[in-house]
């Protein structure tokens, strides 16, 4: 009676990588104000843009996926900042008014 394994992004990441796919792991490392997912939450992305998990309530996942594809290409980790103070707020802000920092790394 456990949750389906596919709902566990870290297991998905392991399976994808072992199947030979390129994988990036995004992790919420800091939150301010009201943020939908707490620090430590994961979103896993493959080279084709498939994803599992979440770092917000669906507000910034699109932008994180785009950045993740870049991280997969370059192999260089990135720290992303989302929130109302950010100039990208109009495009990919957090409607809840909070702010989050997301670390994106390539699984090697």
């Amino acid at each position: 009676m456990t949750a389906p394994e596919t709902l566990d992004p870290l297991k998905t990441a392991e399976q994808w990588k072992l199947a030979g796919r390129d994988v990036a792991l995004a992790t919420v490392v800091e939150t301010w104000g009201s943020a939908p997912r707490q620090a430590g939450s994961h979103l896993v992305i493959d080279g084709d843009g498939n994803f599992e998990g979440s770092v917000s309530g669906g507000c910034v996942e699109g932008a994180v996926i785009t950045e993740a594809l870049d991280v997969i290409q370059s192999g260089k980790a990135k720290m992303l900042d989302f929130g109302v103070a950010d100039e990208t707020a109009w495009r990919v802000g957090l409607s809840c008014g909070g702010r989050i920092k997301v670390y994106v790394e390539r699984l090697v």
Binding site: E14, K17, T27, L107, V108
Partner: peptide, 26 residues
Amino acid sequence: MRIDELTRLNEARAARKAVVVATDLA
């Protein structure tokens, strides 16, 4: 993170052990 590190993390979680992952952000 390397795949062998991720596998170790998932194994510990499957064994119902609490685990900390320390990432050097630099």
